[in-house]
Design a protein around this nucleic acid. Structure first.
Lengths: 334, 334
DNA sequence: CTGTTAGCGCATTCAC
DNA sequence: GTGAATGCGCTAACAG
């Protein structure tokens, strides 16, 4: 430890601990001269306040918790980047927790955060079905901001993207490219985002006089092998000429299966995916992506929770919706 | 807050706070019956110990800090994944800090961690040149483990990969593919990892009777635009038939420049890159990657620091070296 | 402007 | 086995 305390500073300067404390927090009641003396000595001795003591006394930890399904994910890591950025600018520390889409783990994290460890929580919820009781306790006790993956029935601040429009746009893009048998890889099926994306797909089909065919929709979950065989089934049985992947993780099996089945991308099959892999279109011009503004979502979420922490004057009624972008390059580019 | 304290539990049970505290920590001096009563009530009331109070008293925060240049980076996000995993299993919390390769930011973080906020630090250092005095203070006060990006002159536990051999292997792979004019994109030039990678490249050339040509080595830094123009220069002036990229970030500009200059990959130019973008070879079979075991590095780093925290019996003399893998697919595959 | 006093919640003496 | 007392380092109320 740095081990040097306020008391020691006070002793060295013949002041009381209270005065030193006030000087360090730049209180108006302290003379400029005293402040300067305190600051000088603090700097000289490399004084660092003990955060536990400070938190215990002040009930402010200057720490935020971020709960995400997965850190090693292009969207979430970019979002965390934005969160860390804003937090640091405001002197906040950031704790990271990943649920691996397990709602029990999620509940356990939340329970452990009910102890004053953090001032607020930023969360993108697990897509596993499961009751969401654990959010109720949390939301009552400390400010919470949901980003990207939220639950429908939670009354809290939410930051999302235009999922419906994005999927609609993606589908229309494929139709414009000449596809009329478009498969849909349906993930996040019990989250708002997942449902909205599917709706966008459906509506785009209908608007373009293409019948919605349930057989072209594959419900994907956590089981990679199951996803693989289901997608393979789709490709073999229905031979779609286009595919929309509602999450990035499903693109890789798609490519692998196509190679296996000797399906040529994009000649035989065009793919559009929700994805934050920024290099994708460069590495493979045949892939069109819908890219969420992940960094900005993180920034916005952090900014919002800091506001909640400071003046509690945030309109929680309206959700914040940021816009995703359809990024086309190479052969399917406009 | 949960707001329920040891004192309240004690009051409800007609016990003293001390007894409750001991029961909660499963002390041997407490009778089984009492322990059970305490545990039951604690669970019933959703008691969560106040971490600040506990830390203040015990000098153990059960928290680790992770300092990385960038979170939104395939290697680091996967490493953090491993760190979080192990930490959670042992009841530790994980704080995240990113330096953006700025050593001043790095120094500031380290300084702020000297206050008992964390029990240990896991760090991958900034590649910016700068004095490393700030590490000395840190290392003296709390356990530190360096992973992947370490400084040469620091005496601490380090976890790295076989950078030299990897670059050697990568270079030989290109030679086997028929390249004899291999460019090298030199990043991390003042870190051990960067230097070793370059050495591997050089030695592989020499072993294969290819003269080392300084003009084929581009020193890359933080400035993307500068990297871009330098790499473009290399491609125009020297027309290499192979390129080794010592970090993933430089692959994207490579591809962009090649498109611009109408250079065909991999016919005219074969690229091998250090990269943890696992989907890369699938998205683009022409790219061969050297992939570090990022998750395992994280796991190892966390495991090691937890050992340091518990018994301090870790051999700091020898560094831990994990093996990277050369992943070839598609056209340049074996 | 500055000092005195008190207490945040917990864990650890020392008693009994 | 259990309780009483103490203090970790800091901040806030209350004096002066």
């Amino acid at each position: 430890m740095s081990s040097i305390t306020i008391k020691q500073l006070a002793y060295e300067l013949n002041l009381s601990a209270a005065t030193v404390s006030r000087a360090l927090s730049d209180s108006y009641e302290i003379s400029a001269a005293t402040k300067q003396k305190v600051w000088d000595l603090a700097k000289k001795l490399n004084y660092e306040p003990n955060p536990s003591a400070s938190t215990l006394r002040s009930h402010k930890s200057k720490t935020l918790a971020v709960i995400v399904p997965e850190i090693a994910n292009n969207f979430f890591s970019q979002a965390i980047n934005g969160i860390e950025e804003v937090s640091r600018q405001h002197g906040y520390h950031v704790l990271i927790y990943q649920t691996h889409d397990n709602s029990e783990t999620e509940a356990a994290f939340i329970k452990s955060l009910l102890s004053g460890r953090v001032d607020g929580v930023l969360i993108s919820v697990s897509s596993e079905t499961g009751n969401s009781n654990h959010f109720a306790d949390l939301n009552k006790n400390i400010p919470v901001v949901f980003f990207d993956r939220a639950l429908e029935d939670i009354d809290a601040v939410k930051i999302t993207t235009n999922d419906y429009e994005s999927a609609y746009l993606a589908t229309e893009h494929l139709i414009e490219c000449g596809c009329n048998k478009i498969g849909y890889l349906f993930a996040l099926n019990n989250l708002t985002a997942g449902k909205k994306r599917l709706s966008g797909y459906k509506d785009a089909l209908l608007s373009n006089n293409i019948a919605y065919n349930e057989n072209l929709v594959v419900i994907c979950g956590k089981e990679e092998s199951q996803n693989y065989s289901q997608i393979k089934d789709l490709l073999i049985t229905n031979r779609p000429d286009g595919i929309i992947s509602s999450i990035e993780e499903l693109v890789l099996p798609c490519y692998a299966i196509c190679r296996e089945l000797n399906i040529n991308i994009p000649d035989d099959l065009k793919i559009v995916s929700f994805s934050n892999l920024k290099t994708a279109p460069f590495l493979n011009p045949s892939l069109t992506t819908i890219t969420q503004p992940a960094f900005e979502i993180g920034e916005t979420a952090a900014t919002l929770i800091l506001k909640l922490l400071n003046n509690k004057q945030v309109d929680t009624g309206e959700d914040v919706v940021l816009k995703s972008a359809l990024i086309k390059r190479g052969s399917t580019a406009v």
